[in-house]
Amino acid sequence: MKSLEELKAIRDRMQGQLGIRNESNDKTRIVVGMATCGIASGARPVLTTLSDAVLSKGLKNVSVVQTGCIGLCQYEPIVEVFEPGKEKVTYVKMTPEKALDIIDQHIIRGQIVSEYTITAIQG
């Protein structure tokens, strides 16, 4: 079973890595709506899928955070992507599968997945 001793070893390994404490403005932020509406529509697995993918793909300058309700409850789960110097992209009615597409296509390759955006849904 995992013990806190193991955490010490991890710390020693990670302290040697540069850049992990880099909280600068050149970071991409993926924001997941986690109010009652988001959670009830399935935001939790979306958020864990996103943060697991960011870790497993080793995306250094990306952080996944949560926010409250932005007043578009009927479109939850909502994921917003803030890239430095670019306009915010709002993805709606997310699922863990769609979340992986966003990581692969938008975050890694820089191609917005337009069919999942709020503009595509609202017309």
């Binding site: 010490k8 991890i10 404490r21 870790l55």
Partner: peptide
């Protein structure tokens, strides 16, 4: 234990 290594990064 972690000092300034953040809780939400990688291996941690």
């Amino acid at each position: 234990i972690l000092g300034d290594v953040p809780l939400n990064t990688g291996e941690v």
